[in-house]
Nucleic acid binder design. Structure first.
Length: 258
DNA sequence: ATGGCGATTCCAAATCGA
């Protein structure tokens, strides 16, 4: 079984690339972030044609998340229950597989812009709410994967310039503490379960030849619960779509499980 | 220190992303 996550920065623009990527990478589930479109504009038909069911939580212009899957999705939850939020950032659903159900939690974490800002404070509140909800979600669904654009570089090795960017957004002590709190729930960063190349990132700035110079951050992650941990066989970042004409600034992350 | 690119929207200067 393969699970993937990809921030596609506008599904309207990137739909052809998503369909092409799925044809070349027929994963069982793909979590998308930054749809930037409302549900009435979501391309259910084109994705069905590509062989995928889909559930979505969209919004005009900003944010928006969806889960695509080979098999039907059930028990869909949109945004964090009990956490009032104007922004479409979370969608969770259960996928039945040969080895049992898997709970998929797809998140577009808050960016936060700048430490000390109101947006950063919103990021901290959102991270706390996610953590508190995931505790109950994990109890209800032991086989759980948390996938998405976390907007956090968990460690110095996840940044192209950890010294120059110390305590800037995605690198702050507070954001990293929240990431560690998610791990403390029993989740494991699938990418770090395996030996990986040096300077491996999942996002590169469009500006200043960021990708060509590999000035990137590893901010897109797949975390797996204790019950799934032993079944994870591989986790990779697929840099190929970042080389496409008109690419997303993020690359897909793929986890392979038994 | 700032902007640099790309997408979106009251269609075009402003906002947001990371």
């Amino acid at each position: 079984m393969q699970l993937a996550t990809w921030n596609i920065n506008s599904l309207s623009v990137r739909l052809p690339q998503v369909v092409a990527w799925l044809a070349a990478n027929p994963v069982d589930a793909l979590c998308l972030q930054e749809l930037k479109l409302t549900d009435d504009k979501f391309p259910f038909a084109a994705l069905q044609e590509a062989g995928y069911h889909a559930v979505a939580m969209g919004q005009k212009t900003y944010n928006g998340v969806a889960i695509l899957s080979r098999s039907p999705l059930r028990d869909v939850v949109r945004n964090i229950p009990g956490h009032d939020d104007q922004q479409a950032r979370v969608i969770a659903a259960t996928m039945d597989t040969a080895t049992g159900p898997v709970r998929l939690v797809n998140c577009y974490f808050v960016n936060g812009q700048e430490p000390g800002s109101e947006k950063f404070a919103y990021k901290m509140r959102w991270l706390q709410a996610l953590h508190d909800w995931l505790r109950t979600e994990l109890a209800a669904h032991p086989r759980l994967a948390l996938l998405g654009d976390f907007n956090v570089a968990p460690e110095d090795r996840d940044s192209y310039d950890p010294v120059g960017l110390r305590e800037t957004i995605h690198h702050t002590t507070e954001e990293r503490a929240h990431f560690q709190a998610l791990l403390a729930l029993g989740l494991t960063d699938a990418y770090r379960m395996f030996e990986q190349p040096e300077k491996a990132y999942s996002w590169w700035d469009y500006r200043m030849l960021g990708f060509q110079k590999n000035r990137g951050l590893r901010i897109d992650h797949i975390l797996v619960s204790e019950a799934l941990r032993g079944t994870v066989k591989a986790c990779t970042i697929d840099r190929a779509p970042r080389k496409n004409p008109q690419p997303s600034d993020h690359a897909p992350v793929v986890a392979t499980l038994d």
